[in-house]
Design a protein around this nucleic acid. Structure first.
Lengths: 228, 228
DNA sequence: TAAAGAAAGAGTCTGAATGACTCTAAGTAA
DNA sequence: TTACTTAGAGTCATTCAGACTCTTTCTTTA
């Protein structure tokens, strides 16, 4: 395979893209999933919105490429970044096989604190994840896939706190679950579940400034026993 | 990105490989995971064993490429084929960046009936999955990754019967679970679990020729309610 | 022909986890 | 001081999984 370059001339090009997800309050005050997209400045799909991403450099690892492009285009440096799936249908570039790109897609979760640092411009904007325009390539499907993975993974993993600031109340954590799962959860049962899971620990402080009994603040425990 | 070919000249080449897993009885009669490997006939890693795979053709979908290469090199046509992960560290080609290959790896489960059809030759051989030689590239790690996925997925999914012939007894199905999970399961509890899951149905026949009470034969129910 | 052996298959018991729910504590706002 | 709101502790009933027992139904052997 040392002469591979020659015989692989017809191999599709390789890009790395990322679905970034965060939660922000909508008009009615409840949390909703949002994602930043970038406007394409080249054909195909010129002018349409797309996932942030770019070609894979020869000297870069996949995850490195993802976070690198992310920083350049959106200014974000997510703590949570994981490979999602490789999308490579021959027809995903709008029918032109000559344009064929195989995308290795990562997904990232961004906390409330980090999301504020995001660049927003003419060519980078946030959208509600469940109300997207028609995107370039198969990027609508990709985001749907990411949302499915998120809803699935939040049930057995400890990723929910990635959406929050480093310290948070159990009510805030519950809001994350409710927003992702799309249904309300019983506060008492939720508290019991979280406390017995060992995924959070008390900081010893309480959140002040509420108009009721001040809730305890928690932080995520250091990732021992993390489930992939 | 229509001129992409030019600017992507330095993009790594793309290959699709597959981890094929089957269960076969070992010397002591219990089932054990086995996988077929092919001997490399080119540098790098010439002469070493590797996963079956090959470069991705421009006009082929990823999964199509996987099953296509699989058929050509091993003669197998697995019913179960799913994308596993994309492996793309810069150093996985033995240190030569010029040889860099990004592999999109699929995994396949092969039933006892199908596995018999496999070609075996000087350059294609079966190995026990937990007793492999040093393989080309990072293929040892890839197989470990696939085994982890299998052990995880067998717990919440219905893939176990993919290792069996179309009809099977509950004892045979239990043996599959025991081999994959590496521990014994209580026959009674296993029966209750499987029957209440709705993943199997009786064929109405029984397996003859045993030296004890003949067990009922089951088949997998048609994939409704399949969990991804 | 009877007894022994083996696995099939049904059923019991117990403890842990979960959903629905109640009750009290501790703050703010009027 | 009273009303209001959420925090946080606790109860009850149901479901589920592991450990275990017992009976059934076949083959093998005496």
């Amino acid at each position: 395979m040392s002469q591979a370059k020659a015989s692989f001339a017809e191999t599709p090009t390789l890009a790395v893209s990322t679905v970034i997800l965060t939660l922000r309050p909508n008009d009615s005050g409840s949390l909703q999933l949002a994602t930043p997209l970038v406007r394409r400045i080249r054909a195909p799909f010129e002018g349409q919105w797309a996932l942030p991403g770019g070609p894979l450099n020869t000297n870069e690892d996949l995850a490195t490429s993802a976070s690198h492009t992310l920083r350049d285009t959106t200014g974000l440096e997510p703590r949570y970044l994981e490979q999602l799936y490789a999308f490579g249908s021959v027809d995903r570039s709008g029918g032109h096989i000559a344009d064929r790109v195989v995308s290795i897609v990562y997904w990232a979760l961004v906390g409330a604190d980090e999301a504020e640092r995001a660049i927003e411009s003419q060519n980078v904007q946030w959208f509600w994840a469940d109300d997207l325009p028609a995107l370039a390539f198969d990027h609508n499907e990709i985001i749907q896939y990411a949302l499915g993975r998120l809803r699935n993974k939040i049930e057995y993993s400890r990723i929910a706190h990635e959406f929050l600031s480093p310290t948070f109340t159990l009510a805030q954590l519950r809001e994350v679950y409710e927003a992702v799962l799309g249904r309300e959860l019983d506060p008492g049962n939720f508290r019991r579940m979280v406390e017995s899971s060992g995924s959070v620990e008390e900081t010893g402080e309480r959140l002040a400034g509420t108009r009721h009994r001040p809730p305890k603040l928690y932080r995520a425990t250091t990732t021992a026993g993390e489930t992939k």
